[in-house]
Design a protein around this nucleic acid. Structure first.
Lengths: 176, 176
DNA sequence: ACAGCCATGTAACTTGTTACATGATTTT
DNA sequence: AAAATCATGTAACAAGTTACATGGCTGT
């Protein structure tokens, strides 16, 4: 995923590693938790190996350290377009919580209830963080960053709704 | 993720590779698209390397081929419990479609509209499949498998709602 | 005979991720 | 003087994924 994100960020202009990290985080509207800078460099070297980008060192006269600036190749642009053209996964079954809940089948109901309770706390906490972000948007907020935020909120609400449904069904099961 | 799922499936009883594949797919209520059997074996050998499972060959008298049966170790059970105890990710920003939408910031609006339209088609198609599954549940459907199905539907609806919101906002932007 | 299921595994590769190592410049 | 930011990279490992190779048994 980072691979394609870096390609997309290079469409605008050639950039160096650190710059790409900053641009990526800004693009994600502060919603991406931590991006390890090391990963950016490893990903870039793999992209270069695959000829999707090229690089050259710029001796930044007077500036800090020398920078290695990466540029998109035609093959890189093609790879990006191909990625964008393919629809993304629609069913969230590879979501970790889905899998955990599925696995409670082979454990007991108490386990399931605890799992749900823990996850609800997690969602509520995330909800508070996102609500804060909505109330006090970053100075560089824009159309897309606010859409990302609202998307995240919609998914969180769906998650909470689902947890409620799970609790209800489990309670019904116990009555029987 | 498969690693932990396999550990969970071994809580009930010792099992061999192929059996684990079938049990896993059943547990996921048919919602997991394709599980490559090769991945089960590689994951099992890595689990054994890490002493989370042990295995021994059972000479299945009269039966087909010999089977290698895996058993959970105390360390494996501990690893499973630890995994279950940790809350799963709550913000869906690592969702591929989120990232693609974020990246449209650096591309044009038409690109964003196409992206959204394609994704909507994908969601609607998935919705039809899930609706069919709801209407004609598998013979081995149970509480958890129906919860998984409803969870998947809730997330899909949230996804569609979000796409609608994106379209609205983009249309507003264009009027200005 | 042939397809399909049962059963196991290896080799190779991609992507993600962390920890470590280095050093300059700027701000407090 | 110390902390934060700018800047680059490597080594090693974890996890996901596919393609390939092998062979027995079962039903049509």
């Amino acid at each position: 995923m980072l691979k394609h994100a870096l390609l997309a960020l290079l469409v605008q202009q050639p950039r160096h590693g650190y710059e790409l990290k900053v641009a990526f985080e800004k693009t994600m509207g502060g919603l991406w938790p931590e991006i390890n800078i090391g990963q950016v460099y490893t990903t870039l070297s793999r992209l270069e190996r695959d000829a999707l980008v090229t690089s050259h060192v710029v001796d930044s006269t007077g500036e800090r350290t020398d920078k290695r600036v990466y540029e998109l190749t035609p093959a890189g642009l093609a790879a990006l377009k191909d990625w964008l053209a393919q629809p993304s996964e629609s069913i969230q079954i590879k979501n970790e919580f889905f899998v955990k809940l599925a696995l409670t089948q082979i454990m007991d109901l108490e386990e399931a209830k605890d799992l749900i309770a823990r996850q609800r706390r997690e969602y509520l906490q995330a909800m508070r963080i996102l609500d804060d972000l909505s109330a006090n948007p970053a100075s560089d907020a824009n159309l897309v960053s606010s859409l990302l935020l609202e998307g995240a909120l919609l998914y969180l609400r769906a998650g909470l709704e689902w947890l409620d449904l799970c609790d209800q069904r489990i309670a019904q099961q116990e009555v029987k």
